[in-house]
Amino acid sequence: MSLAKLAPSPQAIAELRSFSRQLVRELGYLRSPVAGSELPPSTVHAILEIGMQPGIQARDLAQTLRLDKSNTSRQLAKLESLGLVRRQALDSDGRSTALFLTDEGLSLFAQAEAFGTQQVAKVLGQLDEVDQQALGRYLSLYAQALAQDNPHTLPPQLAVDRLVEGYRPGCLGEIAGFFAPDLQSGGFAAERAMTEELTGFLAGLPRADAKLWLYHQDGHTLGSIALEAGPAPRQATLRWFGVKNTERGTGMGRQLLESALAHADLVFDAVWCSVPAATPGGVRAARLLAAHGFHPHGTVTVQRWGQSRVAQRWCRKRA
């Protein structure tokens, strides 16, 4: 049973406004430069978003940053002049371009990520696990509420009929390509381990305790999510979840996740997911998971595809 929403009291509004101002101050967003760079906060924010979504287009960057087209164009022009961002044509006439960080931009991105990770780690280190989970939940609720009435948060409409269930020829190689950048340190052994895991899962389909969804367009797989029963009765685990770099920011990941969760709500009481901690991909995944009712459940060291890494555990319980 859901609780009725009450009109906020003047005191609650004043307290939350005060908290918001303090949060901005403490995070250093009023200082310029920020994150140990020589750039203003808005520029560093743009660097972070492009770094977390390689291949993002200018219109999607504007949506993410809550900026209009002209402000975004000026921001990008400045980043290009500084040698931090490059454009890559997406079609033959060059009308659509994808944004990528240059080597210098990637260096700044890593510096800003380390700065932000250190800030958050310092805060979480002062809290016990229960308070860490509560903090994540309530900040997520606050962010979602702020975003609801913001027109910039509405993603482009995707074709529902391109979301298909089950294996399609060619999907194995394209799904593997989503995760290839994460395997560079592991070399061939890591790539082989990943391919073997994907092949084993796909070879077992269809089966009652596992599902695969693809975003399939013109014979190509642009995104995928896989769900499997376990680790406990009436629980499930997201085996993998990824989209092609050029499709990030389009709402495709959201649509895939919502399809998997709609099925999970019919069959399971809880869904678990582990995402790499303090990496661009992990940050993107964490944002999306938090926006769909997942809550953090601590970190674990996992062995996957021949590599050891620290992962954040997330869980979503059926309402």
Rank of each mutant, 00 (worst) to 15 (best):
L3M: 11
A4D: 12
K5M: 09
P8C: 10
S9D: 01
Q11H: 09
R17S: 12
L23F: 13
A35P: 07
G36C: 03
A46R: 08
A46D: 07
I47H: 01
M52G: 14
Q53D: 08
I56Y: 03
I56L: 12
Q57C: 11
A58T: 12
D60T: 04
D60K: 08
L65R: 10
R66Q: 08
S70L: 13
S73D: 12
L76K: 00
A77D: 15
A77Y: 04
E80M: 15
E80F: 06
S81V: 01
S81Q: 13
L82Q: 10
R87N: 03
L90D: 05
S92G: 09
R95D: 10
R95P: 03
F100W: 09
F100N: 01
E104I: 05
G105E: 09
F109Q: 01
E113W: 04
G116S: 10
T117D: 12
Q119H: 09
Q119C: 07
V123Y: 10
L124N: 12
G125P: 08
G125M: 04
L127C: 08
E129F: 07
D131K: 13
Q132G: 00
Q132C: 15
Q132F: 06
L135P: 09
L135M: 14
R137Y: 13
S140N: 09
L141P: 01
Y142C: 09
A143K: 10
Q144N: 05
A145T: 13
A147I: 00
A147F: 00
N150W: 05
L154Y: 11
L158P: 08
E165S: 09
E165Y: 00
E165L: 03
R168F: 00
P169D: 03
C171W: 08
F178V: 01
A180S: 14
D182K: 06
L183A: 11
Q184D: 14
E191S: 13
R192L: 13
T195R: 15
E196S: 12
E197Q: 15
G200W: 01
A203R: 15
G204F: 04
L205V: 00
P206C: 06
A210V: 04
Y215G: 07
H216Q: 11
H216K: 00
G219M: 07
T221K: 04
S224P: 02
S224T: 06
L227F: 01
A229L: 02
A232W: 14
R239V: 13
F241C: 06
F241G: 01
K244C: 11
E247S: 12
R248D: 05
R248H: 07
T250D: 07
M252F: 07
E258V: 11
S259W: 00
L261Y: 09
L266R: 14
V267G: 05
A270T: 08
V271Y: 10
C273P: 05
P276I: 03
P280W: 00
P280M: 02
V283S: 12
V283L: 12
R284A: 15
L289I: 02
L289E: 01
A290S: 14
A291Y: 04
H295F: 09
H295W: 10
P296H: 11
H297Q: 15
G298Q: 06
G298D: 08
V300R: 14
R304K: 14
W305D: 08
W305Q: 12
V310Q: 14
A311Q: 13
Q312H: 08
Q312C: 07
W314V: 00
C315V: 15
R316L: 00
R318C: 11
A319C: 06
